[in-house]
């Protein structure tokens, strides 16, 4: 049974060409799906469409359905705001690329993390405070008390992204969409945040839609991938199949460049004695 089913999705602005055309894929409950493409290929728009949050003026056609046990099956395209709002945070939620702008600069971290817990789980008072602390601890933030009182500009980029992850998974969504969650981070923190996401998704058996421009990163964390170019799917399938036998020229290009980088890094490791 599929948790998310995208079929013949088309997204277009009020005027001009399609930004996404005839996109189809499915994500199973607990499954991990990778969406790859260069900047501007329509990855983020796909994520926003699934949340029913396309920018004003843009319209989607085709079908996007979320089928969550206990919440029924919902057609997202054309659904009303009330219906969509019940799904957001519970059926699906998103971790965005840039954690600094994805957090309200004027609201304390604790208050922001409390938002979904209060709204969706109805927690109040002491129970809410404890849930916030637990959520911050779950994403391995040391000193959750201090972080909860801090404003976003007072903590590091890696810490901010952990906070964003804590908020996204606070109410245990069936589907977690991670839109380039490590792209804006320092190289040293990228691996940590990736490992954290990987662990949390497994621990709570959430499904993961992982978006990236980096095939190497996606192939390490998902089992199925789809390669998007200018809003069109050019290749999709099991990760191993795509990496071992890319058919579309653009897919081949991606695989080759990933391999080259790998080889270069191996060479570096050999001469460096593996210290870096």
């Amino acid at each position: 049974m599929s948790l998310l089913e995208v079929a013949g999705l088309r997204v277009r602005p009020g005027d001009g060409r399609d930004l996404i055309s005839d996109l189809s894929f499915t994500v199973d409950a607990g499954g991990r799906f990778g969406l790859i493409g260069e900047s501007g290929s329509g990855k983020s728009l796909t994520a926003l469409t699934i949340m029913g949050l396309l920018p004003p003026g843009m319209t989607a056609s085709g079908s996007v359905t979320l089928d969550v046990p206990g919440m029924g099956r919902t057609e997202i395209v054309g659904a009303g705001e009330r219906r969509l709002n019940r799904l957001r945070g519970r059926a699906a939620s998103v971790v965005f690329q840039e954690p600094l702008t994805a957090l309200d600069p004027l609201m304390r971290i604790g208050h922001q993390v409390a938002g979904p817990l209060r709204r969706i789980q109805g927690l109040r008072g002491r129970a809410l405070r404890e849930a916030v602390t637990a959520a911050l601890e779950e994403v391995r933030l040391a000193e959750p008390g201090r972080i909860a009182k801090a404003y976003p500009h007072e903590i590091s980029g890696g810490q901010r992204q952990r906070v964003a992850i804590a908020m996204a998974i606070a109410c245990r969504p069936a589907l977690l969409i991670a839109d380039e969650p490590t792209t804006a981070l320092d190289v040293t923190v990228q691996a940590e945040v990736l490992a954290l996401l990987d662990g949390l998704v497994s621990a709570h058996s959430m499904a993961l839609l992982f978006i990236s421009h980096d095939l190497a990163v996606v192939s390490g964390i998902t089992d199925h991938v789809l390669i998007l170019k200018d809003g069109v799917a050019v290749e999709s399938g099991a990760v191993l199949d795509v990496v071992n036998g890319p058919r579309h020229p653009y897919a081949r290009e991606l695989v080759d460049s990933a391999r080259e980088l790998d080889a270069a890094l191996d060479g570096l490791n050999a001469t460096d004695g593996g210290t870096r």
Partner: peptide, 15 residues
């Protein structure tokens, strides 16, 4: 137009 508005709405914040 800021990201945090969209981000907040992904967790179900009403208008």
């Amino acid at each position: 137009a800021q990201d945090f508005i969209t981000a907040s709405r992904t967790s179900g914040t009403s208008w």
